[in-house]
Amino acid sequence: MTTYIDFRSDTVTRPTPEMLNAMTAAQLGDDVYGDDPTVNAFEQKMAELSGFEAAMIVSSGTQSNLCALLSHCQRGEEYIVGQHYHTYLYEAGGAAALGGIVPQPIPVSADGSLAADAIKAVIKPNDQHFAMSKLISLENTHHGKVIPVEYFKAIRDLANEHQLSVHLDGARVFNALTELNIDLKQLCHYVDSISVCFSKGLGTPMGSVLCGSEAFISKARRWRKMLGGGMRQAGIIAAAMDYALDNHVAQLKNDHKRCQELSSKLQGINGVTVTACDTNMLYFKLADSFNPALVAQLLKAEGILISAGDEIRLVCHRDISDADVVYFAQSLEDILTIMSQVTAE
């Protein structure tokens, strides 16, 4: 099997031998019965880290967010969300399709946040003609951009003023915390629930955690079961997540550093314009004379995977090395140079 240098996403990371050892050594039980000691210990650990009363392991970030939305809102009620946020755009419309929850999407600001005035403008009055606004759904990071604690404090005040709850899709929240140099509890203080994904930069093969109050998590467990998410010997997953929490969080800064190095190298290549570089994500555009799909095909022939598009996203993760960054930049430059020469002829 060909081994590629894969910049498509941090979801492509694979468990390390040490993580696999932790998984096979885990004490197991039936989690639906509440009998898995590794799950129970890890959920308690995540509750304490986040400052919430309880936590629940689920198979994926999509399931975690869906359980959260279904627990916060009833049928015909509304959640306010960014039109490019994951809970609206990339989760197959689950909240609407399965829960009858009405999404109210609004534009995402350049910094990845939702403007407070834009949120306030769509909060519905208590009128029988409208869906009832119940929840604000946020993201951190968004497209790699880090949203500071001060923003969440302001949104908390707005939510309190209008009796709304706040959910945070924290799929890459540890990337945000790495840049903000704060702990999880400091951010969670301003939200009612958070979903944390471990299968991206933290490198587990699967798994997310939903954190919130005891009553909220109790309701979410019922939704998890209904969604087919009740797992049995889930301690295998919990052990991987626990290992990642203890060993991989501190290494995220290396991904961020490599992303900046990659940006620096790409800025020196003719025909490449870097449009954004935050945490572990870099976005760039090619000059109009280059076909992104062809460039991606030629890079694949050199052992490199990217996702082609008008704007190309590169994601640095724990399976990308310093040498991979150098090799990618040189390969891209060589390919664009050859393509330019062919076009000139």
Rank of each mutant, 00 (worst) to 15 (best):
M132H: 14
R258M: 15
I194A: 15
F216I: 01
D6M: 01
N175T: 02
I335T: 05
L286I: 03
N291D: 15
E48I: 01
A308W: 06
E150T: 12
R172H: 14
D319R: 02
L294S: 11
N65E: 14
E261Y: 02
Q104H: 12
L299D: 07
P292L: 02
R222D: 13
R172V: 04
C277D: 03
I269V: 15
T87L: 12
S264W: 06
T178E: 13
S9V: 02
D242I: 00
A176N: 14
S71M: 03
N65T: 12
T273G: 00
S113C: 08
R222F: 01
Y88W: 12
V102M: 13
H72Q: 04
D334W: 04
L282C: 09
S208N: 13
P292W: 09
M23D: 02
N254F: 05
K300A: 10
Q267E: 13
I57G: 15
R221M: 05
A240L: 08
I101H: 08
D334C: 01
Q104A: 14
L66P: 05
H129W: 01
S133L: 11
V274C: 07
E139V: 03
G94Y: 15
A234H: 12
H189M: 06
A95Y: 10
D117L: 03
K134A: 07
V325D: 00
A171Q: 07
D319L: 10
L266S: 07
L180Q: 14
V325H: 01
L184G: 00
A25E: 04
F52R: 05
S71V: 02
A22N: 01
T273P: 08
Y33E: 14
D10T: 11
Q63F: 13
G203F: 06
M281S: 01
W223D: 04
H167L: 04
N140T: 11
H256W: 08
D30C: 11
I147Y: 01
S321H: 13
L305E: 06
R313N: 05
V32A: 06
H256T: 06
D246K: 13
T141I: 15
N175L: 14
E214D: 09
S137N: 12
S165G: 06
C259D: 02
A54C: 05
T2P: 09
L282V: 10
V58G: 09
V326L: 10
